[in-house]
Amino acid sequence: MAGKQSQLEALIRPVIESLGYQLWGIEFKSQGKNSMLRIYIDTLEKDKGIQLEDCEVVSRQISGVLDVEDPITEEYTLEVSSPGVDRQLFSLEQYVAWAGAEVNVRLRIPFEGRRRYKGIVKGVEDQDVVLIVDDHELLLPIESIDKAQVIPRFD
């Protein structure tokens, strides 16, 4: 699956960046007729959010590239979305940028008997995400993280 992610990223990142957006992340769920390719985009301007029209523009452009290159041979639905306030973190750079944020983390395989953690992102060491959980520092290899989602704060 990592190979498919890399291939998709190589195809669509230049398209998204040429339109003036940032590729935040890619999710591909292969489920037969219900397969889904979800692309998260963000704006480079901190005071401006992603609007529906932004998603439509990016979707049309990406759709054309995917139709020509055909990296996914099965039927799928393409969805382009904003990462939102409860954004998922995909890369080490994003963990660094979101240091101090509270996150829910789901691991691919259990670590210390658990697959789910809630904690504060401290940062990154090499290829590991440093997470503070109940005053304990955990080093979680980025490849072991299935999903990490920011818990929004409204204060």
Rank of each mutant, 00 (worst) to 15 (best):
E45W: 05
D42C: 03
D54Y: 07
T73D: 14
S30N: 10
S35R: 00
E56L: 06
G32W: 08
D70M: 11
K48P: 01
V65A: 05
L44E: 15
S35K: 06
N34C: 00
G64A: 11
G64P: 12
I41C: 05
E53F: 09
S35M: 09
E56P: 03
D67G: 01
Q61I: 03
V58H: 04
I72Y: 08
K46M: 11
M36H: 11
S59G: 06
Y40H: 11
D47Q: 13
D67T: 13
L52Y: 10
D42Q: 11
E74M: 14
N34Q: 12
K29H: 10
Q31H: 13
K33R: 10
K48N: 09
C55I: 02
R60E: 02
K33E: 13
V57T: 11
S63M: 00
F28W: 12
L52M: 12
Q61D: 09
V68M: 12
L37G: 02
L66T: 05
Q61G: 03
G64Q: 14
G32I: 07
G32K: 09
E45A: 13
Y40C: 07
S30K: 10
V57F: 02
D42M: 08
V68R: 10
R60S: 00
I62A: 00
D47W: 12
E45N: 13
D54C: 03
Q31N: 15
L66C: 06
S30Q: 14
K33H: 10
D70A: 10
T73L: 14
E53K: 12
V57R: 09
L37S: 04
Q31S: 14
V58S: 07
S63W: 05
E74H: 12
K48H: 11
E56C: 07
M36G: 04
Q51W: 10
Q61H: 13
E56A: 09
D54L: 02
S35C: 03
R38M: 12
K29M: 09
E45K: 12
K29V: 08
T73H: 13
F28T: 05
L52V: 14
I62D: 01
D54A: 03
I62Y: 03
D70F: 10
S35L: 04
K33P: 14
M36L: 15
S30G: 12
T43W: 05
K29L: 10
E74G: 11
N34V: 01
Q31R: 14
K48F: 06
M36W: 08
E56H: 07
I72S: 01
N34F: 04
L66H: 05
K46T: 13
D70W: 07
R60H: 03
S35N: 07
S63Y: 06
G49V: 07
G64F: 08
L37K: 06
P71M: 05
I72W: 09
D70C: 09
I72N: 05
E53S: 14
G32S: 04
D70Q: 13
E69A: 11
I62F: 07
T73A: 15
S63P: 00
F28R: 05
V68K: 09
